[in-house]
Design a protein around this nucleic acid. Structure first.
Lengths: 245, 245
DNA sequence: ACTCTTTCTTAACCTACGTTAGACGCTCGG
DNA sequence: CCGAGCGTCTAACGTAGGTTAAGAAAGAGT
């Protein structure tokens, strides 16, 4: 069931069969389904138990009273939300399902003493948390210093690479269940401008969209345009041709 | 020596004298000094041992080959850099001293088994990591959705509140060793525009600058202008009058 | 087949911010 | 005391991206 998580962790850690069994066990206890659009947690809520995304996309977002909204992160299959977040008093952001979602609740006690019992697994989970932090820094850079074109392109490159890491790409194609409003909120742009940028990418032959699927026919060119250097994802086996450095 | 860290942690956790002794011990082993402007780590470097900032300011930044640069975070006295970062292969960002800095190297083995030996302390350290992540999300929101005026104001509010948490404010005043270039890089703006915004804040009576000190004569008004709600800092005792929610 | 609703798309216009340029004042080394 | 170098400040102008508005497409439910 938690095959995406396992696939991701195995890119950077050697998991024993016992580790894999433990992950399965972690993830099997209690699973939930959410419909697209449903909120998992709202700003101000008391954080609940950590959860693992088994299927589907969600996003973290923060918003102002006047309606401005920023998506501050994407949660893809195999991602945790949030391993330790329940130490905090109140959520500082919301989490909402973008597509129908399947998730597993992780019981806190299952993680106790993990560092001693299964050090490789504990390290892999710590690695995942660090990567989430690194992605967050890249997003700050993205909205802070990239142009609109670079920004959207970068988001697409990141999504593709992250899905690739969990085996959810097919050739140059993958899912893209975000609508243009959501792309705008993730990049700090207006919907209209996102539309303009997508058109330019399409005309340049760098992007094809049909329904909720996207295809990136010339990934190296898109990576270059986006100033995408995949190092920040800290994956062990980056595709050499996907790198600009 | 690590009094700022202790002060910060005691806002949210009950530390036993033994915990405090342990922190002192952690921090005393090896200390370093860096001059203003020196780099602690560069993008691509292999991460070193975790460090604790005892005195002085530093910043994390990422940049492009064409010179664009984004400061993605500030490291203030009492902050860690980075508790677990040495699990990663390569730094995804740089860290540079903004002022002369005093820091302590934390030996990894000192943290082993901490969860069992000193659970309250281990939780306090995990809390600190989570707060860093929360701040990073707020920065993404800041550069993504706030106007230039709000952005700069928000940065000032955050700096003030974080310094207050470690006891480094005096009345309405605190240090601000960042020059306008650095403020621009932290907010995703140009230097010229930061200057314009600072002028507006000064004229509005919300900011007074002399040398490397700033004074915020009307903090509630500045908080409102900045859309600053201190919840994301997850401090236990927020000043009620400093909140807008 | 219909509406209802959401999403996408484009055009016309506007503004918040960036860019370029230069003046002015520190401070620090010689 | 001088200049070099850096940081601050301001003005003039340019542009990337926002806003408003409205039509076209695409689903979703009946």
């Amino acid at each position: 069931m938690p095959r995406y998580l396992i696939r991701k962790l195995e890119q950077v850690a050697l998991l024993s069969p016992e580790d894999r069994r433990l992950i399965e066990e972690l993830a099997h206890r209690r699973t939930f389904r959410l419909a697209a659009g449903e909120e998992l947690a709202a700003e101000g809520d008391r954080p609940a138990a950590p959860r693992l995304f088994l299927e589907g996309w969600a996003c973290r977002s923060k918003s102002f009273a006047d309606g401005r909204r920023q998506i501050v992160g994407l949660l893809l299959p195999g991602d945790f939300f949030d391993l330790n977040l329940d130490l905090l008093q109140a959520m500082d952001h919301s989490v909402a399902a973008v597509t129908p979602v399947l998730l597993a609740e992780i019981r806190r006690d299952a993680l106790e003493g993990l560092a001693e019992r299964r050090p490789a697994l504990a390290r892999a989970l710590a690695w995942d948390t660090l990567v989430q932090a690194s992605i967050q820094r890249e997003w700050t850079l993205n909205v802070g210093r990239r142009t609109a074109l670079e920004r959207v392109a970068h988001l697409l490159c990141e999504i593709f690479r992250r899905l690739e890491a969990v085996g959810l790409t097919e050739g140059a194609a993958c899912e893209l269940p975000l609508n243009q409003t959501e792309l705008a909120d993730a990049t700090g742009l207006s919907v209209v401008h996102v539309n303009r940028v997508l058109r330019r990418l399409r005309i340049a032959g760098l992007l094809r969209l049909r329904g909720r699927q996207m295809e990136l026919p010339d990934l190296p060119a898109l990576n270059r345009l986006a100033l995408f250097s995949p190092g920040y994802l800290h994956l062990a086996r980056p595709k050499p041709e996907a790198s600009i450095r």
